[in-house]
Amino acid sequence: MHHFSVRIGAISYRVGSAWAAPIASLRRLYADYPVPEDGIATVTARIGPPRPWRRWIRPQVEIGGDHTLPDTVPMALRHALLAAEMAMNMQVALGERRHLLIHASAVERGGRAVIMPGDSGSGKSTLAALLGENGWRLLADEFVMIDMANDMVLPFPRAISLKNSAIPEMERRIADPARFGPLLRQTPKGELRHLRPNPEAIARMDEPARPALILFPSFGLDPAAEGMHKSELFVSLTEGSTNYIALGQTAFEALVRMVEDIPAARFTYPDSETGMAIVEQFAAEMGI
């Protein structure tokens, strides 16, 4: 088993692969990340062939680890990096029991966080990546972790998965090619390329932020914004959380506090510049 270990915020991973190449890609993508505390990874993700011969003959990749879903569809070996990333995500989505997970991206400025929940295609990852290069610190692009003891956002700055039109958009803005993973074509999600967050996001991964604003972006429409009712906000946040139910009353109370205390809105935006401008405008109103 080829493997490597990495710490991303509160999660220390051991990632294993039956093939050497995906581990080499991961090492490049996660260069400069710290190693697990005391050298002990507590979460295992792995990728391997669904049947032994699939390691060599028409190779296929199956995602696995400590926590798995039944009947995941095997992928082509050339998409092994995506499979490894999915395996890592799956461990957090299914296994995290310490912090409340919200399906969202998040950025921080001056110690205050903007949380951006949204379905895939809403542009939440791209928007967070853009803001992360323009005066904000990227906290997370997929899972926002809430420390239920103090309601703070714990950074989880994984590699950002850029899809389709977001890829040239970010390539244009980021000069350092070493921050990009290989371009993956014809994946189940279309074209895909991973982006390592900037050095600041990695260096400050142990610095939590106070959530100050929740914005639901949706990409592709003329600019518009509207407020959200608290009950609607509550339901949207629970729907996107994979561990809200398993955390029981503690999570319920934490989420009620968030919904009561943090202003929320939704907005639509047609392009990157407008999207960032709308977030900046909301942030200015909040004094962020």
Partner: peptide, 20 residues
């Protein structure tokens, strides 16, 4: 080790929830 203690604490919390 602290990291192991935390992982096991989470496992106990999960077990307590399942028990309820």
């Amino acid at each position: 080790p602290d990291v192991v203690a935390r992982a096991l604490e989470d496992a106990r919390a999960q077990a307590a929830f399942d028990r309820t």
